[in-house]
Structure formats: structure tokens, C-alpha cells
Amino acid sequence: MDPAGQTLHGDHARVSYQIPVDARPLPMLFWHGWWADSSCWDTTPDGREGFRTLFLRRGYPVYLLDQSRRGSAGKTTTAAEIGTEPNEQWLFNQFRLGLWPNLYEGGQFSDDPAALEQFFRAMVPDTGPLDAEVVVAGASAAIDRIGPLVLVTHSHAGGFGWTAAIRNNENVRAVVSIEPGSGFVFPEDELPEAMPSSNGTLEPVPISLEEFEALTRVPIIVYYGDNIPTEPTDIAGRDNWRTRVAMAQLWVDAINRHGGDATFVSLTEQGIYGNTHFAFSDLNNHVIADRISAFLAEKNLD
């Protein structure tokens, strides 16, 4: 085919949405993590309700984002090879379902073999290079279009979400982040030390103080689940989250030190046990939804 005269639309985000009757004033925008797309909010691997309908039933307009070059927003302007190297056992360990082939005892992931089958089949690769600027630009355009909202991020979207919140500060009225894994931003002259682990080294991300202070103007809450060690371990899938929790705590402290309103939540310290990296689709996802609802009510955002 001759490309002369042809056009290509790509690198956009895609958003699907539902607005209930007598909706609450602020919608919720849900942003998936790494190796996932917006379908992760629809249902759970074992077939129960996901956050989409759990929050619709609570009266919130719900918007689900597919970030650029992922899922139904997969049309890209830059090609990338999609790897076919087997990695499912690594993902099982990395996302703290257990230590392959065993689920963690007392964990909140279903022990039905069909649930694990569906979990693996739901993993979604990128169709193009993972470019933070492209991803954030697409999400920011969606936030501009939707207007004032509560941003809910998972995992890899955590760092992208902070950046989008900085750019769309007037429209992002709160950030709820479930196990953010990277992109922890700090004022450039207040960087904590990098944190090595058996999974690699986690680096803080420098930004200007002016940009950082945008995060002090909205309430922020982060949640982390179970089976995260407090001491170094050679189990990479767990040590990975030890450093992320430690960096998240420093990040929350930095926001509050600058006059912000950030909260770090360890679910186990609140008596909620067994959660994987996917608390929103674990067996107790309704309990997690209750906690998020309570946070929004406390901040008068419901």
C-alpha cells in the first residue's frame, strides 16, 4: 500500500463511561496499571463485580481509561515488537499472588484454578514503546474533557497519575492510588536516597518545587496490601514492594511537610489481610471499595 496521502490517528487514550441516575457530582476516573487495561475494573478473575459496578451502585459516574498504546487505545504511531517470551510465573510472584505455584496462605486471590487462568489471559502488552509523555498527554486530554473528578490509579499508573494531576490540578480533586509502583516525585533539592532491592533499584524522580506543590492542593491516599516485607529478601517479587512502600512513605511525608493532605494506608495495619497487588479485584474488593468511599466522604468529595 502506498502511504502517500494517507492519515494515521494514534497515541490517544480511550475512555468508556457510565453515568447512573441521580449521580453524585464528582465522577471517578480509573487508570489501570502495567500489563493491564481498563477491563481490569470491569470484573474479577473469578467472575465477581469489579470496581466499575461497585462504584456505579454507589452513585458515582465511572470513567475507565485505556492509556495510549495499550488495550483498546492500542493504535500507535511508533511500532514496537510485542514479546512472546513466557513470563506468567514471574508475574504471579511479582504481583504477590504467592510464590509459584502456591498462592499465599490466607490470601485474597481465589483458589479456583479457573480464576488464575483468567488472570493470566487478561495480561495486556503495549503495542508501542512505553513513553511517559505520550501516556500522560493522552490521560490529561481525557481529564480536560471530563472535568472535575477523582483520579484512581493502580500500580504503574501511580507516577503517571501524579504528573497528570500536576497538569490538570483544577480538575483532579483527589487522587486514590492503589499500590503505586514507580514515579515518586520529589522537589529536586529534597531527593531521598535511591533504594536497592533484589528486584533492582528504585529511584526518586526530581521535579521543581512549583510542580510538586500542585500535589499539596488535593487530598491523596495510597493503599498497600499484604506479604510485603520490611527487611531485605532475595525473593524479588516481594523485595520489589518493600522499597516501593518505603519510597511511598517518604513521598507522603514530603507532601505533608509542604502543607499537603496525603495519607499512607497499610491494609494489614488496619486489620485487612491477604491482599495481592490487585486489591480492587481480590475476594474482599467490596471492603476496599468501602474504604475508598469513606475517604471520599471524609474529604467531602462524595
Rank of each mutant, 00 (worst) to 15 (best):
L191T: 00
T43Q: 13
E203H: 12
S155N: 14
V205E: 15
T216I: 04
G260S: 04
G225W: 05
D282S: 01
Q118V: 09
M28V: 11
L267I: 07
S72L: 15
R173V: 03
E117R: 09
L191A: 01
R69Q: 14
V136H: 04
S198M: 05
N256P: 07
R167F: 00
L283Y: 05
D290K: 06
V172S: 11
F186D: 05
R48V: 00
L64E: 09
L301D: 02
G107W: 02
R70I: 15
A114E: 15
H277V: 05
G225Y: 06
I143A: 12
H277Y: 10
W35S: 11
L29V: 12
V176L: 15
A164R: 10
T163C: 02
I166N: 10
L116N: 01
G98N: 13
L116D: 02
M195A: 06
R167Y: 01
D302I: 02
D234F: 09
H154Y: 07
V205N: 13
V218I: 15
G5V: 02
F119G: 02
A236N: 05
G50N: 05
I143L: 15
S140Y: 02
E88V: 10
L283W: 05
R121W: 00
D226M: 04
L116S: 00
P192S: 01
P113H: 01
T77G: 03
R96K: 12
T216G: 09
M195V: 00
R48Y: 02
E170N: 13
V152L: 13
R244H: 01
V21C: 11
E49Y: 11
Y223G: 02
V150G: 09
G147K: 13
D189V: 00
N87W: 08
E85H: 12
S110C: 02
G33P: 11
R167Q: 08
G74M: 13
G274I: 00
P180A: 03
S68C: 05
L250S: 07
D302M: 09
H286C: 00
P25T: 08
A80V: 00
F109H: 09
D144V: 03
F264G: 09
P113R: 04
Q89V: 06
R58N: 07
A246N: 07
T7L: 14
I146S: 05
I288D: 06
D239K: 00
M123T: 07
T43Y: 07
V124M: 14
G106S: 04
